[in-house]
Simulated scan of single mutants.
Amino acid sequence: MSPAWESADPTRPRRRCERQLADDRPARCDHGRSGPPASPAGDPTSMPLPAPLPWTAPSHRRRAVPTRSIAVTAGAMAVAVSAWTIAHRRSPAVSAWRPPTVSGERLGRVWCRTGGSGSTGVVLLHGLVATGDVFGSSIDDLAERHVAAAPDLLGFGRSLDRQATDFGSDAHLSALDEAIDRACGDRPLLLGAHSMGSTLALRWAARNPTRVGRIVCLGAPIWPSSHAANEALGGMGPMARALLIDGRLAQSLCELNCAHRNLSGCVAATIAPRWPIPIARQASLHTWEAYVQAVHQQILHADWLPLLRRLDEARIPVEMVWGDQDPIGDVGYAKQLASEIPHLTVRRIGKADHTLPASRPRLLPSLLQAT
Rank of each mutant, 00 (worst) to 15 (best):
H126F: 02
G127S: 12
L128T: 09
L128Q: 07
A130L: 13
A130N: 14
G132L: 07
G132H: 05
D133V: 02
F135G: 10
F135S: 06
F135R: 08
F135E: 03
S137V: 08
S137K: 09
S137H: 13
S138L: 08
I139W: 09
I139H: 12
D140H: 07
D141T: 14
D141S: 14
D141M: 13
D141L: 14
L142N: 12
A143S: 15
E144R: 15
E144K: 13
R145K: 12
H146T: 13
H146Q: 06
V147R: 15
A148D: 04
A149V: 07
A150K: 09
P151I: 03
P151N: 06
P151C: 07
L154R: 12
L154P: 01
L154S: 07
G157N: 01
R162S: 10
Q163M: 03
A164V: 01
T165E: 14
T165K: 11
F167H: 01
G168E: 08
A171Y: 01
H172L: 10
S174W: 00
A175R: 06
L176G: 07
L176K: 07
L176P: 06
I180M: 06
A183T: 03
D186N: 13
P188S: 14
P188H: 09
L189C: 09
L191I: 04
L191V: 05
G192P: 03
G192S: 05
A193V: 02
A193G: 02
H194I: 05
H194S: 13
S195D: 15
G197P: 07
S198A: 14
S198D: 06
S198L: 01
S198P: 02
T199H: 13
L200W: 10
L200S: 13
A201N: 04
A201L: 09
L202T: 10
L202D: 02
R203T: 09
W204M: 05
A205N: 02
A205Y: 00
A205W: 01
A205V: 03
R207V: 01
R207I: 00
N208C: 06
P209S: 11
T210V: 12
V212D: 12
G213I: 03
